[in-house]
Design a protein around this nucleic acid. Structure first.
Lengths: 350, 350
DNA sequence: TTGTAGGCGTTATCAG
DNA sequence: CTGATAACGCCTACAA
């Protein structure tokens, strides 16, 4: 279905009205708006007066039409973020983006699609109808149609995360998730844990793959065997952690420490472990990724790695603005640092 | 600062190209796109072929310019939501809005302003530059300039929350917050609590006022004295709850139960109470509003009133779409029901 | 320094 | 049923 026609509200004041009022031609008005150098102070003043008196604002579409620029960027979220925009990750990224563009007169257009097709079609519309000047992709998955499309159209975009291919053609900003996963694992190892469970998010997402790689690297380095049964995947943000905890803890030799895909998962794990009448961290240690705001308010407060989500968004916006307006078409790869936030959900294993 | 000019990417295919290809006039192409009735099947087919062959998409701005319609709605968030988009309320509202518009070909434009002035200017731009067809306001405050402006321009908008004035001229969707506040208080009263602390959010916001009214009503009805010192306000989403807990618990006669402005606050309160080596709910009961996803995962799980945030967004979008495209300009007031979710943060006071 | 004219890509009106 | 043609509101040569 397509929305119907709008009854035009009181016709807006146009550039001609201003011109008439100031006794000049429309083009002159246009020039003072553009701050054209060659304009006499006198007329400039007169025009400006007329503008304020009439409360004139240039029509966005007319301007976009002729300049072929929209001054807005599109944000594309994954399907799963739509169903769970609940994941604080996305709002926080958007905050970061916002911080970077709010004073640059750049607007933000949000995708609303809820299926892969809907999202793809929205992206197509954004670019081919010239709705936006550039796009920030909030996710990457293997075999996705969006990036190939954008690449083919040669349309400016930056990805938050890691592309699964064509690294050298895609601007992205990401964390070093392999390293982060490794660090967390090593931390647990140093705490003397040998049986470490790993709860991944979407099995096909790059983050998950990278975390897992870091995990297994760290294990290998300390000659701790990698055990299949310690690795489980859950996508559902709410029940995921709880279910994974059940799966892990019901093993004949359950882990003494668990790495959760993110703090939301960790909350679920925490809840479930406590429901089992076990203590965190005494009976099982928990660590996770992201450092959401609430992580420090849980019981016990969560040890987690802060990946600076806000910065992810801000840097992405920065790169994109560069790509769109600076003429600099160089591909940029930005790695946002992470750091461990030690709190009280981990302890030494006897 | 204003963003610069974009280098036009490969010029897009226009309606004229299609016309040429199909050997018809541009206006004919326009007609088949609009599904005009009076068009011969033959040409229609030829045109459609040309469209797909050329991969033609109508230019959004050209169309908006002449039709004076944008098929997009603007979402205006409060300053505090920008700094704390962290509050799950906003993402959840947006999910609701999205659910309502994603299949209607309606887009979503997000405000990015971070000061009151920036936000106001953005709104002005949205309406006066014809960027959007309507607006959803995610907050209301007394002495705000935005609603008067919208009203004066006779621009379609709906408010999520309660207007502080001109109720009959403003479409809004809201909860019955007085009732919700009253219910929570009565619940605690029935649990035999007499000393009930109230932590409000922003003291000037309508929600807070309504909650407080419900609170004091309920107290009065049971002849329990209203005590000034039991009422505190905190805006900061993260530290607010903790600080308020300190303030309340250090009273000479501290409350045995606390009503928090929302679950985020409640988390902070919970944390702080536990840091004081007191038990929830045995030493103090906690209840709050909103029922965020995480509320059921805390320790202990939170008793809270579910206000159906998602529906707030969906209904608002529905009303707005009506206002914008249906020709029905009737003011609509929608009250979304709430319900108590009993969990484990409250118990009977001996 | 300023005005005139033409065009950006559509849709709507009016003939035919 | 279809084709010209004139808007929509703005910007940018080109002239003056």
């Amino acid at each position: 279905m397509r929305a119907g026609r709008k009854e035009g509200p009181p016709v807006a004041v146009t550039i001609k009205d201003v011109a008439k009022r100031a006794n000049v031609a429309a083009s002159t008005v246009s020039r003072v708006i553009a701050n054209s150098s060659k304009i006499s102070p006198g007329t400039a003043r007169r025009v400006r007066e007329a503008i304020t008196e009439l409360d004139y604002n240039p029509n966005y579409h007319a301007r976009s039409l002729v300049k072929n620029t929209t001054n807005t960027i599109g944000i594309v979220m994954p399907r799963s973020a739509q169903s769970t925009f609940q994941n604080p990750f996305f709002p926080e990224v958007i905050r970061g983006i916002t911080s970077e563009i709010h004073d640059k007169d750049i607007g933000m257009y949000l995708s609303t699609g809820q299926t892969e097709d809907e999202i793809y079609n929205e992206v197509v519309k954004m670019v081919v109808e010239s709705r936006v000047d550039g796009i920030i992709l909030l996710y990457s998955q293997e075999n996705d149609r969006i990036m190939p499309f954008l690449l083919e159209k040669n349309f400016p975009f930056v990805l938050i995360g890691r592309p699964s291919a064509q690294l050298d053609q895609i601007s992205y900003v990401n964390n070093d998730n392999v390293k982060a996963g490794g660090m967390l694992t090593e931390y647990l190892l140093l705490l003397n844990h040998k049986k470490i469970g790993f709860i991944g998010g979407n099995e096909n997402s790059m983050v998950t793959k990278d975390h897992l790689e870091g995990y297994s690297n760290a294990l290998a380095k300390r000659a701790v065997p990698f055990r299949e049964e310690y690795v489980v995947y859950r996508e559902e943000i709410k029940e995921g952690g709880q279910e994974a905890a059940i799966e892990l803890m019901s093993l004949s030799s359950p882990p003494t420490a668990i790495i959760a895909a993110d703090d939301m998962m960790a909350f679920g794990v925490l809840r479930m472990i406590q429901d089992m009448n076990k203590k965190v961290p005494d009976d099982v240690s928990i660590v996770s990724f992201n450092n959401f705001m609430l992580s420090e308010l849980s019981t016990p407060p969560l040890t987690t790695v802060d990946i600076h989500i806000f910065d992810l968004g801000a840097r992405a916006a920065e790169s994109l603005v560069d790509l769109m307006y600076s003429g600099n078409k160089d591909i940029q790869h930005t790695i946002v640092p992470h750091h461990l936030v030690k709190r009280e959900s981990c302890t030494v294993w006897n």
